[in-house]
Design a protein around this nucleic acid. Structure first.
Lengths: 343, 343
DNA sequence: GTGAAAGCGCTAACAT
DNA sequence: ATGTTAGCGCTTTCAC
């Protein structure tokens, strides 16, 4: 609680010798206010150090000028970069951002977090690691909501997501194009449901590229990992070695896994890309600065965020009334030294 | 604005057949409410899906149960991890977190951001890359504020910070202990004010370790960089090579710089740690997964955050009335393979 | 243990 | 172009 009593509209009005209505008009750039009055009011505001009370304003107007963002945690670089993009885009639109994190394992029930956040926001962006059809419905959220993950069933809100399958297909296609025929895939694997639609789609893209090239992938080269982190990437390589399954390339389902893969390969003396080519997914800032720089999939995160916020604002303003739809943003392959591209 | 009209206390009271006062008591766990009444009210809350309106509650009570956090951007891993720590710690205390970012270069005036954020929070944590004496004063902020950076002058609020000089001294000492005598230092340098007290303190620690070991450092081995990012680390190595100044170790002022350094050394074929030992600062999650794993300084970030939040809550609750003070958290050296430690 | 009612600071409908 | 005022949903004082 502030030690000094808050300066209110009334104080400003008294100081400037006008009514609260006029001050409110000045503050909100409403209606016509004569230049002389405006200047008087602005001076009073400066003198008193007035700042509008956001709680009162929200209570009265029903709008908070705040967007909610729900994500797993900042420590995963993809989500950190996503958060920066959301802040930049929201700020441009004149909104603040209130964040809730779900914890690394999504331990908090997402519907609860969303419902709670909805009370203080005009609209919500949800970006869990994945979303299945039952986790979240539009009914859980009294304000508009846009998901930043792929859609399984129509739960009544918009989805703006990367095209996981297509990205994974691009990466695998690239590795096959280098003549690699034993491409390990790390992250998700058949019968490994932990990473939901995302893991499943990225695995399907891997299969699709093989099918298109007429190559039959060896099931023994697919390693599901509990987490998609550096440590898991490292252990996945050890697991492959344990299985005795030789491989000449690795497609890691995210860049963090790929960091662990590079580290493990270095430790056992394999040359990248000569012995093993490595590709990741996400194109985090670190990717181009690894040793060697990492070939990866740029999922178009900026475009995802900008589109999602645009849709969300349209819902908030009531200019978008259509059914919830799914927009998939096309990914781009970034070829770097880890698959023989330029250093 | 919600499509369905909001469910209010009044609605719950009507549904449960009690007064709003009673519902409020149940919601806030106040006073004595008979078990029967409590159950009736809780049932009504569940049936109607009531959620307290946070704006109204804040307006009335003067408290928002929200802490503000001001940081440069999430894309720098140190700040991402800091944000996760703040969320965890704040949540334990029953507070939400409202974040504002300053942009990578701190382009937004920090005093403005803080003043603005203060309107919707009970207290604020500020963690800019650095803070000089003139940037921010307690007067800019009507709610309690704790800075997560070192203090230059007493501006009237608490500071809880890492001990930059000591951390840097530990790292340099370690490199000197390995017998290295030409230790390049990257980030800040004499006459390079861009990184404020932080850069200055880390440079002083480097000097202090040299003095203690009776070694005179070569000024030509100090490289100031505009940013503390991977790219700058890479370019700093090129700059050293351009200067023709041989070096057998690098102390990078943060881990991101060290990533760029490792990359550059790899590109020109230098072996780490045999030819050049490398140490960083921050101990970001990535550090132990680089190739080779990076020796670095763990600044005790969790302890910094926990302490800062404890102080902030004490200020908010009015149980801490003392002058603003500075608490320095002791850093720890983490020895890894980049200086010959265990792989 | 519960009810009635005032009022937090602001916006906007209704005045003039 | 500016003034007056009701009331957003909640907490809390006062009465019972």
């Amino acid at each position: 609680m502030p030690s000094r009593r808050q300066v209110t509209l009334r104080d400003v009005a008294r100081e400037a010798g006008v009514s609260v209505r006029t001050v409110s008009n000045v503050v909100n750039d409403f209606h016509y206010v004569s230049t002389a009055t405006r200047e008087k009011v602005e001076e009073a505001i400066a003198v008193l150090g007035y700042r509008p009370n956001r709680s009162a304003r929200s209570l009265r107007s029903g709008s908070t000028r705040t967007l909610g963002l729900v994500l797993p945690e900042f420590s995963q670089p993809y989500y950190a970069e996503l958060a920066d993009a959301v802040f930049a885009s929201a700020r441009t639109a004149g909104y603040k951002v209130l964040i809730e994190t779900l914890g690394p394992d999504g331990e908090d029930a997402i519907a609860d977090v969303v419902g709670d956040l909805a009370v203080s926001t005009d609209g919500i962006l949800v970006s869990p690691t994945f979303l299945d059809g039952t986790t979240l419905a539009a009914d859980d959220c009294p304000v508009p909501m846009v998901a930043l993950t792929a859609r399984s069933v129509d739960a009544g809100f918009d989805h703006v997501a990367m095209d996981d399958a297509r990205g994974s297909e691009l990466a695998t296609e690239h590795l096959l194009g280098l003549g690699r025929r034993r491409i390990a895939v790390i992250g998700s694997a058949p019968g490994f449901a932990r990473h939901g639609l995302t893991g499943e789609a990225r695995y399907q893209g891997y299969l699709r590229a093989h099918a298109a090239a007429g190559v039959t992938p060896d099931d023994g080269l697919a390693v599901g990992t509990l987490e998609w982190t550096q440590g898991s990437g490292y252990e996945a390589v050890q697991e492959l070695d344990r299985r005795g399954a030789p491989f000449d390339a690795v497609f890691a389902m995210n860049d963090l896994l790929a960091v662990g893969v590079l580290h493990a390969l270095q430790d056992r003396g394999a040359a990248v890309p000569d012995d093993v080519a490595v590709a990741g997914f996400d194109d985090i800032a670190m990717a181009s600065h690894l040793s060697p720089p990492l070939t990866t999939i740029d999922p178009g995160m900026r475009q995802i965020v900008d589109t999602a916020i645009r849709l969300l604002l349209e819902r908030i303003e009531g200019t978008r009334e259509s059914e919830g739809e799914e927009i998939l943003v096309p990914p781009t392959l970034r070829i770097r030294a880890s698959t023989g591209g330029p250093a």
